[in-house]
């Protein structure tokens, strides 16, 4: 059960990161803080940064450096064209899933 939730959360996290970046480009610290506010996802740096690195390797996000006062340059992440394409298909799949699950639940014992 724990492993299933962990896998599920990892997939959801990618969807959340891409959705966040579709609204605005942002640097890692802000992305982590923003996603930490979401209940149920249990966001940590150790989950967000590996996902950002993988998305960058796969070309779904682009990175640029921005000067930062008193520290190393900030890594600002933004959605690339192929990232937007991936987000569209992930969102469509998510809508399909939630609709199907809601239909099932409507006929279940809870309804």
């Amino acid at each position: 059960m724990k492993s299933w939730i962990s896998q599920f959360r990892r997939g959801l996290l990618e969807l959340c990161v891409l959705n966040h970046l579709s609204v605005q480009e942002d640097h890692g610290y802000q992305i982590v803080q923003r996603l930490k506010e979401m209940d149920g996802l249990d966001i940590r740096e150790s989950t967000v940064y590996p996902i950002l690195a993988r998305l960058k390797t796969e070309g779904f996000v682009a990175v640029r450096n921005e000067p930062s006062p008193g520290g190393p340059p900030r890594r600002v992440f933004r959605l690339s064209a192929s990232g937007s394409e991936r987000l569209r298909s992930l969102n469509a799949y998510w809508d399909l899933l939630t609709e199907a699950i809601n239909k099932l639940r409507a006929h279940g014992p809870e309804s």
Binding site: G28, P73, R75
Partner: peptide, 9 residues
Amino acid sequence: GALRTHIHE
């Protein structure tokens, strides 16, 4: 690298 920036932030 991203973590280093995170710590400084």
